[in-house]
């Protein structure tokens, strides 16, 4: 059954001429994640973030990126993880959605990896619902798994107030 899932995932990607995909890797609550590099506009160090009262819970606030106002989304909150310890200097990954800029707050941004598509696998069926919603699949790296995050899904926030 596993094998079958893998096969279909691979065949889906084989249509593309490229054999590799490039990811910006990041960690959130010690989980390694990747975001396709083409979806990333900027990587920012710790920023001054203005809280927005009455905003949805996931919205950490807004920040100034070279004169543009960017809405910061707390990735931990989005993934239903506990809030980051107070001393964490969170970094952000800026992505664009429908002409608007969003910054995903993460614990740490690490290197950019080019990964062979054959290492891509579908989400394990046991993956918690919160993750499965935002992850398109996983990569097997040496010794650890990297979840591929679906930026479009992450940024599609409902406007329900917190």
């Amino acid at each position: 059954m596993h094998a079958h899932a893998t096969m279909s995932a691979i065949s889906a990607h084989e249509a593309a001429p490229r054999q590799e995909e490039v990811f910006v890797t990041l960690s959130v609550a010690d989980q390694l994640c990747g975001i396709p590099v083409l979806a990333v506009r900027d990587v920012l160090g710790p920023q001054a973030i203005t809280r927005i009262p009455l905003a949805p819970r996931e919205v950490a606030g807004s920040l100034n990126l070279r004169g543009r106002i960017v809405t910061a989304i707390d990735l931990r909150c989005r993934l239903c993880l506990p809030p980051a310890p107070a001393e964490t200097a969170q970094m952000s990954i800026v992505a664009e959605q429908a002409g608007e800029l969003y910054a995903l707050l993460v614990d740490q941004v690490s290197e950019v990896l080019s990964l062979p598509l054959r290492q891509f696998e579908a989400n394990p069926p046991t993956l918690p619902q919160e993750w499965a919603r935002f992850s398109t699949g996983v990569y097997r790296l040496q010794g650890r798994l990297m979840a591929v995050l679906d930026v479009g899904h992450l940024l599609a926030l409902s406007t329900e107030p917190a």
Binding site: T50, I52, S62
Partner: peptide, 23 residues
């Protein structure tokens, strides 16, 4: 941002001279 438009208390946001964002 669209995700904040439902909050009727704000008419917009801006960046102050010191670079910080303010509602």
């Amino acid at each position: 941002a669209p995700v904040l438009r439902h909050i009727s208390m704000f008419s917009g946001n801006t960046i102050l001279g010191d670079g910080s964002v303010i509602m």
